[in-house]
Design a protein around this nucleic acid. Structure first.
Lengths: 162, 162
DNA sequence: TGTGTAATGTTATAATATAACATCAAAATA
DNA sequence: TATTTTGATGTTATATTATAACATTACACA
């Protein structure tokens, strides 16, 4: 089932802190360290609540002192390993994961117009892909599924405008 | 159904020339120009018959004279637009398309070990993805599906070795 | 032959990412 | 508590991927 969570400007502060709380709990339980830098990077990612590039993050971090690229990339690596963020290959960007509690194959719907993103976690998609891969003798380990198109709102506008 | 074409070292020269012939026919019928540079880039891509980076191609082109990055990227853009090659987002690399006659959503199986690649074109995969996207109000236009794992051969080796 | 368009050349630089090594902080252990 | 070990971060430099901007050339067609 899909988490019907919707983030509105009003609820956004909650969505950020909820994500950070989850992250803290998770890291504690796994006995890994959500250091200040990692925490900060995750926070920045959730503040945007859309795909963010590493150098965007870098720029924001640099407002509080000198930071170099490796620092950001290390934090991103860590957050990815812990399943707290996903990397979007088609955008070279990162986004917070809404349900990091258990590892999963996410699928990403990326709006061409407003650049918003929805993550769905549909077992049927991953199953079909795995089945087809196995049918040709391939052992699937990890899936990248990214769909470019229009979100509901932008699609309406597209249609009325043209 | 999947094209059961298999490229072996022995048949590889044929697979290259077949791809180039198809490309020529296609471009002629579409009234677009498969110029020498574009032809050469496509040839180099098929010679490798695995994902190749733009700068790999550049290096090979430079063996016959000075060439700069934009030249390669323009050729790649053209070939992509014509559906003659695909871009692999998770690798920043390009690979020849085995059936460029009609536009399609390809799915890519990428071997972590030997870096070989298989393209499958499974309508069920694209359909399921589109359905699920539409179910959440999203209008899907383009899919990126890339699966990382082991090809049949390498998976066997993996299992016997460890 | 001119004239417009598409393709390519050329230079510079943007954007993304990592290697390599130094330093520092925390946790684990004696 | 001092020691050691490990993991995290700092720092510098550079690799890799990609594009902007403008000049020049080749081709298609009037």
């Amino acid at each position: 089932m899909q988490d019907p969570f919707v983030c509105t400007p009003v609820s956004h502060h909650h969505c950020i802190s909820s994500a950070l709380d989850k992250a803290e709990t998770l890291c504690r339980s796994r006995n890994v360290r959500l250091t200040p830098i990692r925490h900060r990077v995750l926070e920045l990612i959730w503040q945007q609540h859309r795909p963010v590039g590493a150098y965007d993050l870098l720029e924001q971090l640099q407002q509080q002192g000198r930071v170099a690229p490796p620092t950001v990339y290390r934090a991103l690596d860590f957050l990815q390993q812990q399943g707290l963020i996903h990397r979007l290959e088609s955008l070279n960007a990162f986004v917070g994961c809404a349900h990091p509690q258990h590892p999963h194959q996410g699928q990403f719907l990326i709006c061409k117009s407003c650049r918003s993103l929805v993550e769905i976690t549909d077992p049927e998609i991953s199953t079909v892909i795995n089945n087809r891969a196995e049918a040709v003798g391939f052992k699937p380990l990890n899936q990248t599924v990214e769909v470019s198109g229009f979100c509901a709102g932008c699609w309406q506008k597209e249609q009325t405008n043209g």
